[in-house]
Design a protein around this nucleic acid. Structure first.
Lengths: 203, 203
DNA sequence: ACCTGAACACCGTTCAAGT
DNA sequence: ACCTGAACACCGTTCAAGT
């Protein structure tokens, strides 16, 4: 059902730009992304992208938004494939997150480091919020089920999130071996949950 | 005792470049650093820096090395000013780290994201190792003192380190309010230590 | 040894003009 | 509406040549 009506040179230049750009970013990092080269690869004049993205940062913004959408799907998927057990849910989501964050390190950088915040930040913010809300929901469920002590929801979620972000960052920075990321993530989650558990149920 | 013997135009071009570059990076980020502009600001031809740094990445490498040296001093200072109590030591170092990481976010990025690993990585690696060893030493002391369960030293240190890195990253990314970074860091450290404490001493 | 000046091959961005 | 081609002001890097 893709539209066949290619206009001047390309059916959908906007999508083509985004696809190619994401590919370049994944392979070579953000710094390697050149608008001119992108246009060349697609076979369009170097000024053509201007119609769809007012400048380089606007394109990066769009990439970040798409990234959050994909991350959300990845996280939802991980929850669906886990059992209903609280610890299982948290671990599954944690593993899915660090995998995404390290497989697509450059994209994740784009999503968080607000080097381009001046632009579509409303839409970007919304896309990001949806992802964070997923993590919050899991933690909230755990609190309500009495799995962890009833502390401030935001603090608990944020610390958990930060730990995952840090594990991914250290892996990207070659301080954690990629093969140890999984075990280390599980260990970190277990330790945190143990620290958060109601006092007398600590085994 | 600064050397007065200015040679062609500048007494010590290398130092001047590094100082000015660190300043620019701190104020405007890595991407804003231009070798030509740097040379212009210092009042030297645009090709002069080549004598001291073979290219832009080599200069960034040197900045990263200097950053690790300063971080090390900051961490050592924080330990000196804390009491001998294990939890105090860890908390003090943690707070010092996240403060450095957020105050000098762009520099920290330079220090970890190995976008320039191709060059002086030997020296850079050594400078980095000295910092990490400091954190390791504190954790090791805690284990030997029986403050935390005798688990794998590397795992414990790495998870702690990752959490700090993540807290800093989320703060830089505006997901944690700068005023909450301190309290949140203390909370994270306490939670982790509680999760790591020997089973029956959990309060 | 250290620096200059010109040159090369790239950028991002802008804008009149074409269809 | 969508794209082109030329132009502008920047880059990083290289290299002969100067002192």
């Amino acid at each position: 059902m893709e539209t066949e009506g290619r206009r001047y040179h390309h059916g959908d230049l906007r999508s083509a730009l985004l696809d190619r750009a994401e590919c370049t970013v994944r392979e070579s990092g953000v710094d390697a992304l050149s608008l001119r080269e992108l246009a060349r690869e697609i076979g369009v004049s170097h000024a053509a992208p201007r119609r769809h993205f007012r400048d380089r940062n606007a394109l990066l913004d769009a990439l970040a938004i798409a990234g959050f959408a994909r991350l959300r799907r990845v996280l939802e998927e991980s929850l669906k494939n886990a059992t209903g057990d609280f610890r299982e849910q948290v671990s599954a989501m944690a593993l899915a997150y660090v995998r995404f964050a390290t497989d697509d390190a450059a994209l994740l950088d784009l999503m968080f480091t607000g080097k381009h915040q001046a632009y579509a930040s409303a839409e970007l913010g919304a896309a990001a919020e949806e992802c964070f809300e997923l993590m919050f929901a899991v933690v909230r469920a755990g609190q309500q089920g009495g799995e962890i002590a009833p502390a401030d929801l935001t603090s608990v979620s944020t610390v958990l999130f930060a730990t995952l972000q840090g594990l991914a960052a250290l892996t990207t920075g070659d301080l954690i071996d990629k093969n140890e990321l999984g075990p280390l993530t599980t260990y970190a989650v277990q330790t945190l949950l143990r620290g958060l558990s109601p006092a007398h149920t600590v085994e």
